[in-house]
Amino acid sequence: MVEPAVRISQGSKFFGEICAFRSINLQVPEGQFLAVVGASGSGKTTVLRCVAGLERLSGGSIVAAGRPVTRPDPSRTYVFQDYGRSLFPWRRVAANVSFPQEMRGKGRRVARERALGYLELVGLRERADAYPWQLSGGMQQRVAIARALAAEPSMLLMDEPFGAVDAQTRMELQLALLRIWMELRKTVIFVTHDIDEALFLSDRIVVIDSRGQGLAMDEPVDLPRPRSHAETPRYDLYSEMRASVLRLLLREEGSEAPHAPTTQ
């Protein structure tokens, strides 16, 4: 049997009384692009942080590449939504990207050489010597992606990475991410509240139940690749899945109000 990239078994996380998530069972195969959606507060970020090792589970277990996750590891890197804060303002772009290698004791020159390679990959090589705060939001997020890749992880964890950019830039970033993913074939866990984004990018969508009942949905996204913003949404499967995810999210919301009228 092939060991999955991540396996969460009966995972739960509580902050004191507050339940962030509960009864999560999830296996992510190597190289899969997984999208995680769910209502606000359903625990998406917390799940991702637990997989990263930034947070410890309250119950259950997470195993990544055969080893229990207890703390962060450069084999699982994270792209934060808050790229403005996550990029270090005291380091130039190239130095930000070479940071993971430097932390592993690589010499500056070697680390920089590699960093330039990853900047090339995200199309920002010529901005290597700018400071991150001199770049646009979309460029900054591409630098953050380059940095996450520069750690040479087997898995990329992304928490609403494109949530803070405009629609046009978001589409460009999605395409860039897919191109890179097709090239490098890393496992990606991508959290988003945008159903279209989830469908456009992923191999598989899971919806986290906001009442703490594990996964409300877990479906493959069998849309052909390469995907395009003009063509992909035209597939029937796309609109069917979109509708069912949407129904799920809306039903969940409705069920929280005691006398919500039934739609449909």
Partner: peptide, 20 residues
């Protein structure tokens, strides 16, 4: 977020202090 970023990319011990 800065501290988390440091942790994710393996800044530990003195490196955490000096580099983050």
């Amino acid at each position: 977020v800065v501290l988390d970023t440091g942790r994710v990319f393996g800044a530990q011990g003195w490196r955490r202090w000096v580099s983050v």
